[in-house]
Simulated assay, not measured.
Amino acid sequence: MRFDPSKLETKNVYKLLSGSVVPRPIAWVSTTSENGIRNLAPFSFFTVASRQPPMLCISIGPGVGARKGTVKDTLENIRTGKEFVINISSTPLGNEVQKSSENLASEVDEFEEAGLTPIPSEKVKPMRIKEAPIQMECKLHQIVELGSDHLIIGEMVLYHIQEDYYLENYKVNFEKLRPLGRLAASFSESKDFFSLPKQDLK
């Protein structure tokens, strides 16, 4: 079978992409509005963009449901504040991740709504999630408009990891982390790990 994306509805192209590019990690992004309201939202169009300087990128789509036709709070807050935090969730925090994905009014503090603990960052204004095993403070590098979406590229300026998730030599304990991911509309847990013969990755 083959599909020509120019002849499909956007939602159907999205379903093909999100069901094929898997598993996708989740960036649990915390931002702060101009009025000081804490915002929190998960994004699974997320990856590393550069090693030196260390940069991360997330893609933010347009508002959906009741927020259709609007700009998502995360995008607006990054545009104005030029800072954000990418928190990494473990599977036991799945309910809180899902709660923070709901379409809520801009004046709602989503840390409170999801029952999470905000803790101060050191180099940026937005709060970190205390319960998240890993938190990466980021400063905005660039916003690239790509069709209906916006690609946010941020430089990581400080990295936090809870001590019991850290192995020696700058490695993360994946078995302890149990990272939460996305498979199309479903969530996934990474818990089975294996090695292959070493090769140079292209």
Rank of each mutant, 00 (worst) to 15 (best):
R2W: 06
R2H: 08
F3C: 00
P5S: 02
L8M: 15
L8K: 10
E9C: 00
E9V: 07
K11R: 07
N12Y: 13
K15Y: 04
S18Q: 08
G19I: 09
G19Y: 12
G19E: 10
V22W: 11
R24I: 12
A27L: 07
A27W: 04
V29T: 10
S30P: 10
N39D: 12
L40S: 07
F45I: 09
T47A: 13
Q52Y: 12
P53S: 09
P53Y: 04
P54V: 05
M55V: 02
I58S: 09
I60Y: 06
P62A: 09
G63H: 05
G63D: 02
V64D: 09
T74R: 01
T74L: 06
T74A: 10
L75Q: 05
E76K: 13
I78R: 02
R79T: 00
R79M: 08
K82V: 02
F84T: 02
V85I: 14
N87C: 07
N87A: 06
I88A: 04
E96K: 13
Q98R: 09
K99T: 14
K99E: 10
E102Q: 15
N103I: 01
A105Y: 09
A105D: 13
S106T: 06
D109I: 11
E110M: 05
A114M: 07
T117F: 09
P120N: 10
S121A: 14
E122C: 03
K123N: 03
K130T: 02
K130D: 11
A132R: 01
I134F: 03
Q135P: 01
E137Y: 01
Q142I: 03
Q142E: 13
E145G: 01
G147K: 07
D149C: 11
L151N: 03
L151K: 04
E155V: 01
E155C: 00
V157I: 14
I161L: 12
Y165T: 10
Y166V: 12
E168K: 15
N169S: 15
Y170K: 14
V172A: 10
V172E: 04
N173C: 11
E175P: 03
E175Q: 10
P179H: 11
E189V: 13
S195Y: 15
L196G: 05
